[in-house]
């Protein structure tokens, strides 16, 4: 359909104007996305469609030649997701190109009814294919945004802090589900390597309750840390959680626990050869390095 492409090239301005008028008529939500932006997107799409690489045909939207159009549709879908448009609004953007195209074909191309039908059919299918593509791109982009937001939230909720040279703490606050427990595990182990810390305190004072799966995650974290050469101390276990752990038949002898974060910290200092003492006549506690370990 070389004729169709030529027609589009020659009438690009008119197509654009008609398309944009059509879009206004069906009242797209202009509070979400500016006219200028819509106009720019429509213009780009028209330019790309009318000037494809040689031997690219409208009959096959999945061919290599339409890659730039597909990329552009993906870019538009990303901006629509960011503006909060719905998937149907996003697809409607392309469907609105049909009336101006059909009008132009009727006016300029036709010789026989058969040919008219064919041209309209090809155009119709091409625009449908584009709309389908943008709808799928929209869903893909939205999934990505959601996944990223979830990840960011998880990261914010698992801050690993260095208490002392070689001693890390991860105070977990809020309910732990399996995904978050996994995240806790990964960030703690990563931090151990990055900071070369031999001691890691996992403080769960802020965790109201854990289920079996989460308790197992915590234990796996402790075991994995040991395999890497670091020691984990579990602190702040609530009575209910202690019951869950015992109920699981987990041997608490394998895990070092302390009731409070401060006690766990003291233990870690002690194990790394340091002690906390109080200067006479001074109520500020200070740390004096003991023998050997740097």
């Amino acid at each position: 359909m070389v004729k169709l492409l030529k027609m589009m090239r020659e009438n690009q301005e008119r197509l654009l104007t008609d398309w944009l008028n059509g879009l206004k008529a069906i009242a797209q939500r202009r509070d979400l996305i500016s006219d200028v932006e819509v106009r720019e997107q429509a213009r780009k799409i028209l330019t790309l469609i009318s000037n494809p690489p040689p031997d690219t045909v409208l009959e096959d939207f999945s061919s290599e030649g339409w890659q730039t159009v597909r990329d552009q549709l993906m870019a538009i879908s990303i901006s629509r997701v960011a503006h909060g448009s719905s998937p149907s609004e996003t697809a409607q953007f392309l469907f609105s190109l049909k009336p101006p195209m059909f009008k132009l074909i009727r006016e300029q191309l036709t010789t026989t009814p058969d040919e008219l039908f064919r041209e309209i059919d090809v155009t119709n299918n091409f625009i449908d294919a584009m709309a389908l593509h943008i709808a799928e791109s929209y869903i893909e982009s939205r999934d990505k945004v959601i996944a990223r937001q979830q990840e960011e939230m998880l990261e914010l909720s698992t801050p690993v802090v260095t208490l002392w040279d070689g001693i890390l703490a991860l105070p977990v606050i809020g309910t732990l589900d399996s995904t978050r427990a996994q995240m806790v595990m990964e960030s703690l182990l990563q931090a151990i390597v990055q900071t070369n810390s031999r001691f890691a305190i996992l403080d769960i004072t802020g965790v109201p309750t854990v289920d079996t799966l989460v308790a197992q995650h915590l234990l796996k974290t402790i075991t994995a840390a040991r395999l890497m050469g670091a020691e984990c101390i579990l602190s702040g276990i609530r009575p209910q959680i202690a019951q869950t752990i015992v109920h699981l038949g987990i041997n608490l002898n394998d895990i070092v626990t302390r009731s409070k974060l401060a006690d766990a910290f003291r233990l870690a200092l002690d194990r790394s050869g340091r002690t906390v003492t109080q200067k006479p006549g001074n109520h500020t506690p200070v740390t004096a390095p003991a023998a050997g370990v740097s």
């Binding site: 390597v193 810390s197 395999l227 890497m228």
Partner: peptide, 29 residues
Amino acid sequence: VGMQPAVAITLVELGMSLPGIRTALNVDL
């Protein structure tokens, strides 16, 4: 020494916690 976090997590999941083995973070330690 030097077991990577991803390796450690996987090994635990596999069911091997190597209880008889001493470990350290790096060659120096």
